[in-house]
């Protein structure tokens, strides 16, 4: 299949700059191809920025980056109208948000005010500045990165805003072999714009969505999904179960994942593959349960039978 080859080459291309992270790259692609925003959460220096920039490159999309700081204001992202003395009128200077891929670096360093300005734009696909609504480019992806929230000087995103991200990924340390290869490589972490080949054409990108909607979902799989969702709502380890929006996101990503793997139907393994990144940040452990979101996902996957009884 043509699209499958394109995806594989894109993954391979990103792999040249981000070594040994093929699984995460695939998931990130899946997220973007499902038209969702991506949150990458990890310690500094793990390649968050590299991944997002590389993704934009291989998809052939325009890319801008905003480093979020505590004194960043909404206008710094959205843009501002400036009085032009020559033709005596206000002219709008668009902010960095007017791009196809926006990297919001360290989103939890800025104030909630700026965070919500960005998240609103993410939800609606448009921004309203001084009473005028301006559409954002199509497609529009936000790849936000954040440090683990227990670091000092951060404003953790509330759950309702975490929900706006389709996936949350953690990169983790590279395996020793990949790391060694990185030490030996010439760029040694330096990443230049235009270094990567574009792998998906705009036609392929738009056509992809249509193909995904045709992916077949059988009753057996819906049963499995409903069992998963019911488990999160009934077990006492969960303070909050998966919302219908969360369940929809799961199904959507599973479809994309199936299509990425060249299948015309979703199998339980597709659902399991996207379960951790899609559900992990939406599940909150109850007071009785010591584990975090990741542990909850493991528990969920372990406890719910794939085949109905």
């Amino acid at each position: 299949m043509e699209i499958q080859g394109a995806i594989d080459s894109a993954v391979a291309e990103v792999g040249t700059v981000l070594l040994g992270k093929e699984a995460q790259v695939r998931l990130a692609l899946c997220c973007l191809l499902s038209r969702g925003h991506l949150l990458i959460e990890d310690l500094p220096g793990m390649g968050k920025t590299t991944l997002s920039h590389a993704l934009a490159e291989v998809l052939g999309l325009s890319y801008k980056r905003v480093q979020f700081t505590s004194d960043l204001l909404p206008a710094d992202i959205l843009g501002v109208s400036v009085y032009d003395r020559t033709d005596a009128s206000f002219s709008f200077h668009p902010g960095p948000i007017f791009t196809q891929v926006l990297l919001a670096d360290e989103i939890n360093r800025t104030t909630p005010r700026t965070q919500s300005a960005l998240l609103e734009a993410m939800a609606e696909g448009q921004v309203t500045i001084e009473g005028e609504t301006r559409p954002l480019p199509e497609p529009f992806f936000v790849i936000a990165t954040q440090n683990p929230i227990d670091q000092s000087g951060t404003y953790p995103l509330p759950e309702s805003q975490l929900d706006r991200f389709l996936m949350r990924l953690q990169l983790g340390y590279p395996d020793p072999q990949a790391e060694r290869q990185m030490f030996l490589s010439k760029h040694s972490g330096q990443f230049r714009s235009g270094a990567l080949r574009r792998c998906l054409s705009p036609q392929q990108l738009t056509g992809f969505r249509d193909a995904v909607t045709r992916v077949h979902v059988a009753d057996s799989l819906l049963d499995y999904l409903q069992r998963l969702v019911a488990f999160t709502r009934q077990s006492r380890e969960f303070a909050v179960g998966l919302s219908p929006r969360g369940a929809l996101a799961l199904l959507d990503c599973a479809r994309t994942w199936a299509h990425m793997n060249g299948r015309a139907h979703v199998v339980p393994e597709d659902l399991q593959a996207v379960l951790a990144p899609v559900a992990g940040h939406r599940l909150i452990p109850s007071g009785d349960y010591a584990g975090d979101g990741q542990a909850l996902v493991d528990l969920l996957q372990r406890s719910v039978d794939v085949i109905g009884r």
Binding site: V267, P268, E269, Q272, Q301, R302, S303, V304, D305, V306, I307
Partner: peptide
Amino acid sequence: RGRGEGPRD
């Protein structure tokens, strides 16, 4: 087969 183990796995 484990409870959460899919057919392919």
